[in-house]
Every structure is written in structure tokens, then in C-alpha cells.
Design a protein around this nucleic acid. Structure first.
Length: 414
DNA sequence: TCTGGGGTCCTAGGACCC
DNA sequence: TCTGGGGTCCTAGGACCC
């Protein structure tokens, strides 16, 4: 029996979810029917297009471009801010429906899932896909594309065909006809850099890539070259991984500053504010960190990073933030700073830590303090307890991560 | 291309060990 | 002081994804 895999992809996810939320809260305009985008706040230099409606595609608006540029293309463009907590709820509601069709579901991102549907035949698979697509539309109000194949890669490529609200198949024997004529940049894992390099080798379609000598591609792109060669021929052996079986390799937060910072202390404060959202996330996940790294982007857009491996794994806010600030002092070249980030890697499980760590009474006290702070903030809100350094400071006490508190009210079925 | 934020994996070079 | 090879870990940067 062959495997049957679905890839479910929400059409213009952020935009559709914003549109539904608006409709449920008394607005009469459906954002999906007009040129509209979900975008950041240009005032704080977060102004790029995160998602676009189908009508806005006609103006050539692309995800990732600046709001300024998008407005040049379409002056009447409607711009709405992201509502991350709404997206999380919408995503959960969709997965609940998907679970009625299969116990084996992999959430690939907030708006994409793989489903193992191997209990079905090819014919009944299409029926099931139509059924779940229509149920999501009727019960939740947004549309999805469903891609069907015998593996994840081809299912994902299939869901990317004509949109919205479609079911497509892409079985191995359909690859030459349905996938090979597409431009090579439509291939999963072929981004802009690789597209440019491939163009110089006269490879412009996925078919060209499939027909190129895998040894040649390996020579040029190493392991990655061999991988995209396989992908172009429809070869991929990955399996659907159930939730909870994938462990987190690292976590990080970063933020673009509202203006370029030129002094050390303000940068340290930004790092602290990032830590105030990042380290509690780490503790929530029950992990300890071995390696701390920081990332700096200068006003001229060049970036630097530096990492350091601690002598022991930790989840203490003050200890990890001290490490981040030290790294900053070591790497910063006095250039104006546009963007700052911290990330943690080499995560360890908390329950297998060295018990001797707690024999250090200072460490134990700091650990207890972190726990109390987490608890107070959880019960009384993040702003109930902030670092003294942020009082009367232009730097926000918390940076990065998903800001949920503005959107705690969600009624109806989403 | 005046370009957000959260992730993953790969590579190449160096340190250090046997 | 120079010469090897293999293994592991660390580090900085770069590619890709959503």
C-alpha cells in the first residue's frame, strides 16, 4: 500500500484571519475582497508586507517589501496590523478539524500542516480533501488549498498550485507535466540566491534542474545541490512527524530599533528587554541553555554575531543577560546599531541538570527570584514588574516575541 | 530590493585530543 | 621543531523556510 500525504495550506493566512476577525467585530468590509495587506508599523521601522490579499497581487505587491513601496504601487491599499493571538486560535481551530481525519498530523507552521492519510486510496483521498477543505470554510470562514501526493515534498508543491480553495494532486507520474514546466524558484528550498546561481548554469525551470547531472550539482552546491536535484525529480523520503516528537534546537528573539542606537547602555537595555521575553519562554519550555549568541545589525545593514558557550547550562535571566551584554561589549565596533538579537542554542533538558548547581546558594536565590517574577507577571501582567532601568527609559521593558495582551478577547468559533 | 521576526541546517576553519 | 590522520567540539556566516 502506498503512502498518501496531504499538505493543508491556509490561503493568505494572516490576511484571511484578520478579515474574519474584523467581520466578527462589526466591520462590514471583507479585506479579502479589496487590495489589502497585513503589515508592520513603519514608524518603528517594522514596516514590511507580512501578507497580501489576492486583489493586491494584481498591483505586483510582494510579501517582504516595504509598506512604502507597496503604497507606491497601490495608493488606496488598505493596511492592517498583525493580530498574532488571533492567528494562533485560528490555527488551533483548523488543526482540531484536521484531527478528525487523521491522528498523524505535523504542524509545519502556523498556517500549514502535513497529514498522513495512508489509510485512504487515491480516489477516497480526493473526497476527504474536498470534505475537510469545505468544512474548514463553512465552520471557520477561511479557505485552504490541499495538496495530495505520496510524500511531503510533492504534497507541498501541489498545494502551491492554483489558489484559493483548491485540491490538487501531484503524484510521481504527474511530476513532468505539472511540476517541471514551473520556474526553478518555485521549487521548495530554491531561494533567490540559488536561483541566480542556477540561472548562470542555464537552469531556469524545475525540469532543467531535474535533468541536470546530480554529480555536477553536488560539486557546485555540496549536499544542498544533491538535495535540490532529488527534490526536482520528486524524490524525498521524509515522514510526517507527530506533534511533540520534534524537539526545539534553539530559541531567540530580536528587534529592529525605532532609530539607530549609538550608546552602549541603551543597547544593553535592549538586550535586557529581549531577555525579559526570551528567558521566561525558555523556562516555560523546561530547558537550560549552554550557548548564548547575540546578533547586531548596523545602520549600513551589515551584521555580526558572536556566541559563547557557558561552563554550565543555565536558565537564569540575570546570568544569561550578563553573558549577552558581555558579548555585545566584545563585538560592538561603535557603529550605529539598527537591530539587536539574542539566541540560545545547545538546549538541555532541565530535569537532567547537575544537582550540584543548586548547592550554590546565590544561584539558588536567583533561580527562586526568576520563578517569583514569572509567577507575578503571569498573574498580574508583564507590566506589573519591570526592571528599574526601564523607568523613564525610551527602551521598552519587553521586546520581541508574540504580543498577545492586546487581543485576549476572541469570541465565536475562532 | 534601503529590507521583520522566528526558526532550521550546512560549511569551513580552528582548537584540541589521541 | 616539524611531520600525519581521525575525531569532536566550537565558532561565524550564510542559505533556506514560514
Amino acid at each position: 500500500m502506498e503512502n498518501i500525504i496531504f499538505h493543508v495550506d491556509v490561503n493568505s493566512a494572516y490576511l484571511s484571519w484578520n478579515a474574519i476577525w474584523d467581520l466578527q467585530h462589526g466591520k462590514t468590509l471583507d479585506l479579502r475582497t479589496v487590495p489589502s495587506i497585513v503589515g508592520g508599523d513603519p514608524e518603528s521601522r517594522h514596516g514590511i508586507v507580512l501578507a497580501k490579499s489576492i486583489p493586491s497581487k494584481k498591483y505586483g505587491i510582494k510579501t517582504g517589501e516595504t509598506l512604502f513601496s507597496a503604497l507606491m504601487k497601490c495608493p488606496e491599499l488598505k493596511i492592517v496590523p498583525p493580530r498574532y493571538s488571533v492567528y494562533l486560535k485560528a490555527s488551533d481551530a483548523m488543526v482540531e478539524i484536521l484531527r478528525e481525519y487523521s491522528p498523524l498530523i505535523e504542524r509545519y507552521s502556523i498556517d500549514e500542516c502535513f497529514m498522513d492519510m495512508s489509510h485512504l486510496t487515491r480516489e477516497s483521498a480526493v473526497e476527504a480533501a474536498l470534505s475537510l477543505k469545505n468544512r474548514i470554510h463553512e465552520e471557520l470562514g477561511f479557505t485552504v488549498n490541499v495538496g495530495i501526493s505520496t510524500g511531503k515534498l510533492l504534497a507541498k508543491m501541489a498545494s502551491d498550485f492554483r489558489k484559493p480553495d483548491q485540491v490538487h494532486t501531484l503524484y510521481q507520474e504527474e511530476v513532468p507535466k505539472k511540476m517541471w514546466p514551473l520556474p526553478v524558484q518555485d521549487m521548495f528550498m530554491v531561494g533567490s540566491r540559488t536561483t541566480e546561481k542556477l540561472k548562470k548554469m542555464n537552469i531556469t525551470t524545475i525540469g532543467d534542474l531535474a535533468k541536470a547531472d546530480p554529480r555536477f550539482l553536488h560539486e557546485k552546491f555540496k549536499k544542498y545541490g544533491y538535495m535540490i536535484s532529488c527534490y526536482a525529480r520528486g524524490i524525498d523520503s521524509s515522514t510526517v512527524k507527530n506533534e511533540g516528537t520534534v524537539d526545539m534546537k534553539g530559541m531567540g528573539n530580536s528587534t529592529t530599533l525605532p532609530f539607530d542606537f549609538t550608546d552602549r547602555i541603551s543597547c544593553h537595555n535592549v538586550l535586557l528587554s529581549i531577555g525579559e521575553t526570551l528567558v521566561p519562554r525558555l523556562r516555560e519550555a523546561g530547558k537550560l541553555v549552554k550557548t548564548v549568541s547575540i546578533h547586531i545589525r548596523s545602520s549600513d545593514f551589515t551584521s555580526f554575531s558572536m556566541q559563547k558557550t557557558l561552563p554550565f547550562a543555565s536558565d537564569s535571566t540575570s546570568l544569561l543577560m550578563a553573558a549577552a551584554c558581555e558579548l555585545f561589549d566584545e563585538i560592538w565596533n561603535e557603529e550605529p546599531v539598527r537591530h539587536l538579537g539574542i539566541s540560545f542554542s545547545q538546549l538541555k533538558e532541565k530535569d537532567i541538570q547537575q544537582l550540584s548547581f543548586f548547592k550554590d546558594s546565590r544561584a539558588e536565590k536567583m533561580n527562586r527570584m526568576d520563578q517569583v517574577i514569572d509567577m507575578v507577571r503571569k498573574n498580574f501582567g508583564d507590566d506589573s514588574l519591570i526592571r528599574a532601568t526601564f523607568i523613564n527609559s525610551p527602551v521598552k521593558a519587553f521586546s520581541g516575541g508574540v504580543v498577545e495582551k492586546d487581543y485576549i478577547f476572541m469570541n465565536s468559533h475562532l
